[in-house]
Simulated scan of single mutants.
Amino acid sequence: MARADTHTRLVGWLKVGLPLMALAILSTLFLVARRIDPEAALPYAEVDVEALAREPRMTAPTYAGTTSDGAALTLSADEARPATGGAAATAASLRLALDTPDGARTELLAGSAVMGDGTREMILSGGVTVTTSSGYRLETAEVAAKLDRTGLESRAPVVATGPAGDIRADRMVLGQDARTPGAYVLVFKGAVRLVYQPGG
């Protein structure tokens, strides 16, 4: 009987003590909390709204499509600006990937690009690097890339390294092989100079 009486007394004290402890904890939360200054300025992003309205742009745009000959084309850039007031559409830090039906892959990196008016062609410039899955790495100042079919053509001299050695040429063209349907070839044109590296 004494044990039941002790238990009842303990439960009675806890019924009063626990809510009082909870109330004390809650009151310290409000007393210790930092005061909010309503006069302090709200943090906003430092953006020039007028400049954005004057020069619209997209950040990190991506485009994916298929050319008429079945190649998968993917374009991405750090920034793109639409055509406005007679100026052509442009892109900065452009990456282009071309996967042809024969299983080959070609990747281009360029500092900038300009979209041709109604030509379905993009001019890549600002130091263009071309890498192919066949082992070639090319550098040139400017490349014209077709968007409706597989076609890349440099508009400046090319310096390349590949399985055959080091190559210098006036220009290069990547496109469909006219003699073999479904095949794609990389052709160096103009004054072509090959430095062959045996065993390389």
Rank of each mutant, 00 (worst) to 15 (best):
P38V: 04
A88S: 12
R9C: 10
F188L: 09
L174I: 07
L10H: 02
T62G: 11
V158H: 02
A160K: 03
E121Y: 07
V195L: 02
V143Y: 04
R81K: 10
L29D: 06
R9A: 13
A2Y: 10
G135V: 04
A97C: 04
R9S: 14
V47D: 06
G182W: 03
A88W: 07
L75P: 08
G116S: 05
A169W: 00
G200Q: 15
G175P: 05
T140K: 02
V173E: 11
L138I: 04
M1I: 12
G118E: 14
A77L: 01
D117Y: 08
G70I: 10
G17P: 00
A92I: 09
G116D: 05
T59L: 15
R149E: 12
Q176S: 13
V32P: 07
P163H: 02
A110I: 02
A72S: 09
E50Q: 08
M58D: 15
T8I: 03
V192M: 00
D170C: 10
V158D: 00
V130R: 00
V173S: 11
T66V: 15
V143T: 12
D37H: 05
T62W: 11
A145T: 01
T132A: 02
V159K: 15
K146C: 06
E55L: 12
L152N: 07
A169D: 01
E139I: 09
A91Q: 07
L52P: 05
D5I: 15
M58K: 14
R155N: 03
V159I: 13
T150C: 11
Y44S: 10
M172D: 03
I25C: 11
G190H: 04
Y136R: 07
G118F: 08
R137I: 06
A110Q: 03
A145R: 01
G17H: 00
